[in-house]
Amino acid sequence: MTTPSHNNRIWITIDGRSLQVPPDITIREAAALAGVEIPTICYHDALTPNAVCRICVVEWRGARTLVPACVARVADNAIIQTNSRRVRTARRTLLEMLASAVDLSQAPEIQAMMQEYDADPDRFGPEARRRETGGVKDDNPFYVRDYDKCILCWRCVQVCAEDVQHTFALGFNHRGFDTEIATFFNLGMKETTCVFCGNCVGVCPTGALKGKRLYELELRGDS
């Protein structure tokens, strides 16, 4: 007896290579089966993917726009290019825009991506507005928040809410370019529902959230 999953396998082509994959997996997962790694920033294995960073976009023949590989699912006979010129332009421009707005000095993975895609954030000039959030928020004994380093990947908000902790201490200020991670009326963490579980610090990819001890060690190292 053949297993249903075997019966259901579909053919796709990724970067010129045709292969059979299970249906209903994402492009990112299918690409991994083809030995192709697709870059991601906001994606995290343990969290609901929201496809906000769009670094993982790929070209799907016939689609009007690029599609996000972290959430878009493969279909039979899909022809996908993960590294075309169009894809690379989008990724390079996204990285340039991100680096021109945010302090990425403690985000080595994104820095490596910028090398890979030849991204030059200085193209936007010295007057390009940066994310300026008024300095490090040091308001509790456990961790600090430095939102000049925040890339709005949403991971901290998600672990604090339905994805893990159900604490609902974190949300957003403003919208658009001015969006910021925030607490209720920007209260200090001790005045919120925060239980100091540390999950948000654990998933932060850029050092915007940092354990207090590490932060103090770094400060001492700088001086």
């Binding site: 974190l170 949300g171 957003f172 403003h174 607490t183 209720f184 009326f185 919120t192 529902t193």
Partner: peptide, 25 residues
């Protein structure tokens, strides 16, 4: 203001930060 929002949260049973972020949006 925060006090009114806290009262709204209590009445509707909505976490306070979700009220704050909606007003901000």
């Amino acid at each position: 203001d925060p006090e009114i929002c806290a009262a709204i949260g209590q009445s509707l049973r909505v976490p306070l930060v979700q009220i704050h972020e909606v007003i901000e949006f």
